[in-house]
Design a protein around this nucleic acid. Structure first.
Lengths: 223, 223
DNA sequence: CAAATTTGTAAGAAAGTTGTGAAGAAAGAC
DNA sequence: GTCTTTCTTCACAACTTTCTTACAAATTTG
């Protein structure tokens, strides 16, 4: 359960936002002492901060900087002073987003959830191709099938990448040849067959049978 | 250098945004064929996507879903249809932000840079990197494993840092070379191999075996 | 400034990957 | 059915990439 810290002196807005957040299954805390925001921040250890600009004692920019000094937690400004200059300034101080007041509750929550997703759920931004419970990880150059990692050579990876990118479509031998070898490099036509063969064997060893189908005279396909 | 893909059919806006992004030292590509957005996406492998909603053939929501099927790349919508419903819908499809047209160039760039920072720089700039009970202390340049401190030389530390920053991803030899030596300094390609070798031996002395895996023809990876 | 540590280089060994040709099997045409 | 074409399989050799080792140069340390 994610924790959201609300730094907002208007108690009406604060409690409205808090209720919204709670209904989205978030744990919420509102700062009460605007002199000691940092200690409340440290005690609560939030996953996300909603921050107003106009606050008693110190303004939101100040607290944004203070928080950034000690944490990389996502910070979203909430303010009626949403002119371009303020937005740019907030971002430069390390903020992640700026939502203008008055805001729509559903938009606020959508942005909050998107930011939590981006910051915590999406670890690395790798591209992956999925098919029949087999996941091709483009960053690790491996195929994962039933939690088993199948390590691929460069050619094997390229074949799978090309086929999975075009899944459901027949990929001609020529197209595969092109994506495996440079155009000026002439290799035997059979070489592709052998590479496909080797890949198939490797997949069958992990019980991934009939993954690549042959369409005689046309090419290969993943269905 | 981060790559930004612009999916926008209004060429005036697209080139204006592209120029802005270039002046911020970003590499930019604009989609030209709105039937094959995915193949352009795969070819360019962007770090961030700027996406219009009204497009020929398929709309932006469609492409947002298609991209999310294969990637967790940050997606920012750019649209004049910025009513609450559309914003919420976009976020629910996996988008990260929604900027209303017409937008201020500085705001756009501030948001783009903030999103890149959030997605790629943060999380890596932690004070220590952890993996398989091994903790890399970036301050002391030591690796701690089962309460045993392994002191690292400068090169050993840099290799581990680069690999642990990209854990789960294959790091190419070139990238490692770049992070170990300045670009204008030419060292033998084999020197990297030797350094990796030395590091591995040191790790094995502390029973930390198979920490760095070789992906022949691709690079090295920590899994 | 001398000793210890770290780093770069070279050459050969080892490992892994890839290409080739020949023989056999399968599919489609007649 | 037979023929032709296309695809599969296999073993081997060639090749590329990576590893290992020893040594010398460079850097750091006391």
């Amino acid at each position: 359960m994610y924790r959201v810290l609300i730094i907002e002196d208007d108690t009406d807005i604060a409690s409205a936002v808090a209720n919204q957040a709670k209904s989205w299954n978030l744990e919420v805390s509102c700062v009460s002492d605007f002199r000691n925001v940092l200690s409340e921040f440290c005690a609560f250890e939030p996953h996300l901060v909603l921050l107003d600009i106009t606050l008693p004692f110190y303004n939101g920019y100040h607290w944004c900087q203070e928080i950034r000094n000690i944490s990389k937690v996502p910070i979203i400004f909430l303010s009626s002073a949403a002119d371009n200059m303020n937005i740019v300034m907030a971002m430069n101080l390390g903020a992640d987003d700026f939502i203008a007041k008055p805001f729509d509750a559903s938009v606020l929550m959508a942005k909050v959830m998107a930011m939590l997703r981006r910051s915590y759920d999406f670890g690395t931004n790798t591209t992956f191709l999925e098919h029949r419970e087999a996941i091709l990880d483009t960053a690790g150059q491996t195929l994962t099938f039933h939690h088993e990692k199948i390590s691929l050579t460069k050619n094997e990876y390229r074949i799978l990448f090309c086929l999975m990118q075009n899944k459901g479509k027949v990929v001609s031998r020529e197209k595969l040849m092109q994506s495996l070898w440079e155009t000026d490099c002439f290799v035997d036509d059979n070489t592709l067959t052998v590479n496909i063969n080797r890949l198939r064997k490797k997949l069958e060893q992990s019980n991934l049978t009939d993954f690549i189908q042959t369409k005689v005279g046309v090419g290969y396909i993943i269905v």
